[in-house]
Amino acid sequence: MLAPVLIFVYARPEHTRKTIESLASNYLASATDVFIFSDAPKNEKANEKVKLVREYIDTLSDQEIFKSLKIIKAEYNKGLANSIISGVNEIIKLNRQVIVLEDDLITSPDFLGYMNDALEFYERNKKIWSISGYTFNLDFPEKYKSEVYLSYRGCSWGWATWEDRWNAVDWQVSDYMTFKKSKSLRYKFNRGGRDMSAMLDAQIDGKIDSWAIRWCYSQFKLNMFTVYPKVSRVKNIGLDGSGTHSGISNRYDTSLNTSTKKCEFDHPELDDEIIRLFKDRFGTRFEYFVIWNKKLIKKMLRI
Score class of each variant (00 low, 15 high):
195 D>N: 14
113 G>H: 09
127 K>Q: 14
189 F>Q: 07
132 S>A: 15
138 L>D: 02
207 K>V: 05
163 E>V: 13
200 L>M: 00
133 G>T: 12
148 V>Y: 01
136 F>Q: 02
138 L>E: 02
167 N>H: 10
138 L>C: 00
134 Y>W: 12
163 E>H: 15
139 D>R: 06
171 W>E: 05
184 S>M: 06
123 E>K: 15
166 W>C: 12
137 N>V: 10
168 A>C: 02
114 Y>V: 10
191 R>W: 06
141 P>A: 04
156 S>F: 09
172 Q>I: 05
151 S>I: 00
131 I>H: 13
143 K>Y: 09
199 M>E: 11
134 Y>R: 07
164 D>M: 05
215 W>C: 03
114 Y>A: 10
144 Y>D: 00
173 V>S: 06
205 D>N: 15
193 G>V: 05
114 Y>Q: 11
201 D>Q: 13
210 S>E: 02
196 M>R: 08
130 S>N: 06
149 Y>P: 07
176 Y>T: 04
132 S>F: 08
144 Y>F: 10
124 R>W: 05
154 G>E: 05
154 G>C: 07
158 G>H: 03
119 L>S: 09
192 G>M: 04
143 K>I: 03
195 D>R: 13
195 D>E: 15
203 Q>P: 10
135 T>E: 10
183 K>M: 07
139 D>E: 13
178 T>W: 01
141 P>W: 04
163 E>W: 10
168 A>Y: 00
172 Q>K: 14
115 M>R: 09
182 S>W: 00
204 I>D: 03
140 F>R: 04
145 K>L: 05
